[in-house]
């Protein structure tokens, strides 16, 4: 019981530390900005394998620690067949996305996509979540919806609206992210700000404590509400050679009380900060 409770805390800590940030700073706009390739319709077919060092601090499910530090392997990739595409960007821990590019114009692009990302966007310690947290592992992860991206010179905007595809919680997620990238000689700098809305169905699935969970974990019952969170990120990408890329970024995310007030959180903070750096081999 105690072990399960601890695991649950660790997993939910990951949720708090990174999920909201990752969701807000979606990988698609994030990857575009990191590539410094803002141009409507550009698509990279590639796969890269990286070694990443990550440090994050914020509200956690642990009574004794408010931070996570890990070194892990990340896989980033993207491939397009005609108008269908598959994407995976481990640095955002967004899991897998399958999509269809439905429309392009000079400045706008609209994709329909399904993402295995919601419950696995905990890049800080998503392995713990996957291995230990049954309801995250078994359901609620696939979301479907659309994303609209606008490209204006060095600036980019992305709006996503997604719904639970598994019917486990029937939750909804909406996000708006603004970003900019620019070049300092061969260094590529990017910055993003974003806001994300998650409805109470979605939040309750991950951090709510219903009667069954309350009994199992010996916690008071808790019903989460809708949440709004804000994120900002700044980072750099540098091409070391034709095959190697260096990346570094830092991100700060404000967390909604409706999430942090969950009794799963033992260390309560209203914001999460993370720093990550990686060396990636591009195939």
């Amino acid at each position: 019981m105690q072990q399960s409770f601890k695991s649950y805390f660790l997993a939910l800590s990951a949720f708090c530390l990174s999920m909201v940030a990752s969701q807000t700073l979606a990988k698609d706009i994030g990857q575009t900005l990191r590539d410094n390739s803002i141009e409507s319709g550009f698509h990279n077919n590639y796969i890269e394998l990286g070694m990443q060092a990550f440090y994050g601090t914020g509200p956690t499910f642990s009574e004794t620690s408010d931070h996570i530090a890990i070194i892990n392997i990340i896989i980033n990739g993207s491939y397009q067949w005609d108008d269908f595409f598959i994407e995976m960007h481990g640095e955002d821990a967004r899991g897998l996305s399958l999509g269809y590019n439905a429309w392009n114009s000079e400045n706008w692009s609209f994709d329909i996509l399904a993402s295995d990302s919601f419950g696995q966007s905990q890049y800080e310690n998503r392995l713990w979540a996957r291995q230990e947290l049954k309801h995250w592992r078994d359901g609620g992860n696939w979301i479907v919806g659309g994303r609209l991206m606008g490209y204006f010179g060095n600036n980019m905007v992305q709006f996503t609206l997604q719904h639970d595809a598994t019917n486990d919680h029937k939750g909804n997620l909406a996000s708006l992210v603004l970003g900019r990238s620019w070049q300092l000689r061969n260094w590529n700098v990017h910055s993003m700000i974003g806001v994300e809305f998650g409805d109470e169905k979605l939040n309750n699935f991950f951090v709510g404590v219903d009667k069954r969970r309350a009994s199992y974990y010996d916690l008071p019952r808790y019903k989460s509400g809708n949440s709004i969170s804000y994120s900002a990120e700044i980072g750099v990408t540098y091409p070391i050679s034709e095959d190697w890329v260096f990346k570094a970024a830092t991100r700060v995310t404000s967390l909604d009380d409706s999430i942090v007030d969950s009794p799963f959180y033992q260390t309560k903070k209203s914001s999460a900060v993370s720093v990550r750096t990686s060396i990636n081999y591009v195939f």
Binding site: N44, Y46, Q80, W103, E242, W244
Partner: peptide
């Protein structure tokens, strides 16, 4: 001059659905 990511460009078109 060489590149890490060899971008290809999608075609600009109207709705295809």
């Amino acid at each position: 001059v060489a590149w890490v990511y060899k971008s290809t460009k999608r075609t600009v078109s109207t709705w295809r659905l």
